[in-house]
Design a binder for these strands. Sequence first.
RNA 1: GGAGGUAUAGCUCAGCUGGUUAGAGCAUUCGCUUGACGUGCGAAAGGUCUUGGGUUCGAAUCCCUAUGCCUCCACCA
Length: 875
Amino acid sequence: MAELLEKNYDPKSFEDRIYQNWCEKGYFKPDTVGDKPSFTIVIPPPNITGQLHMGHALDNTLQDILVRYKRMRGFCTLWLPGTDHASIATEAKIVEAMRKEGLSKEDVGREGFLERAWKWKEQYGGRIISQLKKMGSSCDWSRERFTMDEGCSKAVKEVFVRLYEKGLIYRGERIINWCPHCLTSISDAEVEYEDQAGHFWHLRYPFKDGSGYLELATTRPETLLGDTAVAVNPKDERYKDAVGKTVILPLVGREIPVVADDYVEMDFGTGVVKITPAHDPNDFEVGKRHDLPIINCMTEDAKITEEFPAYAGMDRYAARKAIVADLEKEGFLIKTEDYSHNVGTCYRCGTTVEPRVSMQWFVKMEPLAKPAIEAVESGDIRFIPDRFSKNYFHWMRNIRDWCISRQLWWGHRIPAFFCDDCGEMIVTKENHAECPHCHKPMRQDPDTLDTWFSSALWPFSTLGWPEETEDLKRFYPTSTLVTGYDIITFWVSRMIFSGLEYMGEKPFHDVLIHGLVRDAKGRKMSKSLGNGIDPLLIIDQYGADALRFALASNNSPGNDMRFSDERIESARNFANKIWNAARYILMNLKVKTVSDPATLSGLAIEDKWVLTKFNRVCREVSENLDRYELGVALAKLYDFIWDVFCDWYIELVKPRLFDEDCPTRDAAQNTLAFVFTSTLKLLHPFMPFITEEIWQKFPHEGESIMISAWPEAREDLNFPAEEESLEKIIAVIVAIRNRRNEMNVPASKKVPIYIETEAQKDFEESTAFLMRLAGAGEVHFDRDFDPEKSVAIATDAASVFIPLLELLDPVAEKARLESEKEKTLCEIERIVAKLSNEQFVSKAPEKVVNGEKDKLKAYQNALENILSTYQKLFS
RNA sequence: GGAGGUAUAGCUCAGCUGGUUAGAGCAUUCGCUUGACGUGCGAAAGGUCUUGGGUUCGAAUCCCUAUGCCUCCACCA
């Protein structure tokens, strides 16, 4: 048969072609005919602004493995793809792009801005989708969704209105994290803390009655403009008398009270704190408790307001300098210390956040959190690995109300309307509202919703909710969510309470958590470090299968992994190995169809051996996939393919392939092809392209490997006795190779070998193996050799002698045998001690005890062989 | 400050619910144009499983302690 495959694996020559074919055939669509159980994954929607990075590559590889596995297993399988509008990130990018044109948001107006944003979405939203396709992702693209498409938007409005009517959404004045650069509120979770070098300014706040002053320290002297009290701990003896008195605010001259509050820690600083409710979250709380006025001294871009003419218009840092200078000039500054402290920054732009009091929309979390906690407690929702449920509980049990309004334009606009005449406010799904009192058009709230508000609905909004669709009935709840641990709180937890609240049912059963992909040195990949590895470049160089292999192998749930050149190279080498195995089998495959080995006559021992091994790996792969141990499953396959199938089985079967008159030649070809194509099926979820390309070249039934049936382990193809027999031969081959290597016998040198064994029959049938794989010239079972001039090898099944006079060093040989004897004796001693321990024998399970007995027997056999060899050589 | 993870060969990691002679890949060393593959084949060397206790007939594995590294949460003016 003509050579069908190129010598080297070249993924570029087939990956795109194969993917396109899968799409055209519609294999990615769920087969909804009949009532097969469904398996559903909704994709964690990537940002439309985003480019595929290693995190996506990992996330999607894992999802695709699960989906392809379940599809082959016969599930009605849906992997639903889509993208996220990512309000703050996208808006920032668009603003940035406009800035380069010299335009601002205000210049183009809300309408104009949104027009640009949608154009942006059209332009870049498709980019990441095409990148996912490059990876081989078997998503049903006909069901692709976007968090701001019509359906999702409808779901968002529905949810908002329902929650509002239930009293779970409210509007309130709160101190929130404000980014003075992005000009929007950001949620607690979006704040990143970093250590910053700063100062601790010790200030003097004089009492109004002239009886001295209070000393306090602050890191933010500019907020003093907004101070409305000074606080001490009620238990603090030092300041007992001060409580209730009035102090004069330096520079401003305002009279403010001294209050007592537990929030103040006595042993930190001077034990006195200035209270600025408008500019510090803790102070805000203290202010509420003591009914203090809120004086906002900063504009939304963090400049001092007009109310303080001396500093008006100054940026907060400029104002800090000016105020410190003035304090010093007027004698209020006692001292300045260096001080390093944690400062919150905007996760998007890095600007230091400014706590700011403003009117925002909130979701009341407590009633929603309760069932969400129970769902995980009861096991209805399961985290893999389980430890992440602890993170989840911790967050859920300490949950605070969720600030959902954002001062952005790109996003779902809050469906609330205000009447400028009478101040009426209504919440409605309608796009326009008329004031129920004044009958005039109302003004819609300008704010939009937090991106995660729509992502939280993703598992059901994408299936058609609030309509009662067929998809919703069939695919909700979804089966498994695959995502990184970094967004458990942002996203996973919010989907859980949302699903329970609106659907009355969990959004998914299993949450498979994976770690981060780090660089070769273990650092997080980031733009600023420039250590990111572009998956597309990797695909271009090594192929998508190699990338997928590199990501899936050695990956265990929840743990970070490192990505390196060596890793991807070994992945590519593995693909090349498979390629060449296929090439070789095809070269030797004369049969036109591949029959089931159970129907074959003339199965040889090595055929039965490999079938038995295949059965095992088949079971192991399925089991580990079911347990989400994808890395383990892949490792088992790797070992089977490389070590068992290529290095042993192909080598063992070669003599039969070369011998045109061999009666079992067809059986050999058949078994080769059967085991190999079955193995390709097991490998397909991990490496879809190469397995398809090769499978198509083999005799096959059906159109594609991706819709073929998953192999099952089969009792009728299980031959433990033959497996064990061949293992004995293999052990001898390995031992002979070993000795030859030690003694520098060239591989080309054929040597006669003499074997003494109880399993002589097995060895007699295997002389071809010994000749081929152990460099035996002749194999004898008699004793017609001179022991004194022979190299001896002992395994637990046989003693082997090689008359190699010229290589024999009797002294070394003696020493070697003695050391082997010692080692074996040690092992025997260990096991004997174990077995004579009554506690062990009585308490250990029978299986373990018998295992030890078997081991002992093997060692004793080996020892016997060593001793008899020794005797022959040196007695 | 609170919580969690992790510590196994030079490097990256497996080792599941305790019983293996503690494994793999890469790197290293040695030997090979063995009729698929040098992106390969055959072999070797390399580990007191971080410390100290405990449970057990038996611990890399379970519990406690210490230490290192990583992550998340909270945030002290």
